[in-house]
Amino acid sequence: MFSGPIEQSKAATEASFQVSYRIAQKCKPFSDGEYIKEIFEEVSDSLFVNFKNKNEIKKAVHGLQLLRITVMRHIEIISKNLNEQLKRGIALCVAFLLQFDESTDVTDTAQLLVFILMVFEDFSTKEELLGMISLKGKTRGLDIFTEFKAYISQIKLCIYKLVSMTTDGAPAMTGIHNGFIALCHKDEDFPDFISYHCIIHQQVLASKRLNTKHVMDISFKIVNSIKGKSLQRRLFKQQLDEKEPELAMH
């Protein structure tokens, strides 16, 4: 007798969580949930005009809970759930890798982003953002190490599963004596791990080593010749339209 309403209530709750997740993903205001519901209610008359269960669909749309406070609560629940999933993943994985990216926000505060790549027994992997550490003072290797050590102690990270770290080539990270990586190697709490440059820096180093100047000089001349004059651009685009229509669109 009550199975129908209960299932409908579950479906409405699930849909509300999905909308809330998309709002958070796109960094939109929480109040946009009500706006989305209003639009959905307005278009439902035209969209479902030939559906026999049109009234049931409109009723289901009307039942969506997308008030600002509700969206905020849903996002908080999603955030806690994702955090719990991350903790379970770290506990179950056999090893993990860490990657660091430092940047400065609009308030001139240095933010250290820590990404984790977990490897499980079946050789599957999962990459997540482990956390963000604010460096409000100096950003020396010792400062980064101190903040990171306090952070992993706070979240109780199983540091013995660490197998590698990837950083940029900044002296604060890669310094031989006082760099972040060097300090981690000296600390007894850290296992023996491998350190890498990030892929972008590896590509830059490789390009300098390979010496592709003779190739790049010709490429630059061709591009500048095409882009330098409007007539050249039109003729080039026309040629692409005739031979490779899909390529011309890109």
Rank of each mutant, 00 (worst) to 15 (best):
I144H: 06
A182H: 07
H177N: 14
E76Y: 06
D45L: 09
I23F: 02
F180E: 05
V163G: 00
L135V: 01
T109A: 10
I36M: 12
I152C: 07
E102R: 03
K229D: 08
A172V: 03
E41G: 03
A12W: 04
T167K: 09
H185S: 08
Y21D: 10
V163Y: 00
C27H: 14
E128D: 12
L67D: 07
A248G: 07
F148Q: 01
G4P: 01
T125P: 02
K59W: 00
I155C: 04
S153D: 08
L117Y: 13
G33M: 08
E76V: 12
G4M: 14
H201I: 03
V119C: 12
V106L: 08
V49P: 00
L66V: 07
L130D: 05
S153N: 10
K28D: 05
M216K: 00
Q85I: 11
T139S: 11
L129F: 08
C27Q: 13
T174M: 14
A91K: 15
V114Q: 09
N55P: 04
K37G: 05
K37L: 09
P171T: 10
D32P: 01
S16V: 02
P191S: 04
E127Q: 13
F51H: 14
C184Y: 01
Q238L: 11
H214L: 05
R140Q: 09
S207G: 01
T166R: 10
S195T: 03
K186G: 00
M118C: 13
K161A: 03
F30T: 11
D143G: 09
S124E: 09
G89A: 13
T174G: 00
T13K: 14
I6E: 06
Q99T: 11
D101H: 06
S103Q: 07
F2I: 14
E244Q: 09
E84C: 08
G89H: 10
F120I: 11
G33V: 06
E84Y: 10
S153V: 08
L157R: 00
Q85D: 12
L129E: 00
D168N: 13
I57D: 00
L130E: 05
F193S: 06
H250R: 02
S9V: 02
V19Q: 01
N53I: 13
M118K: 07
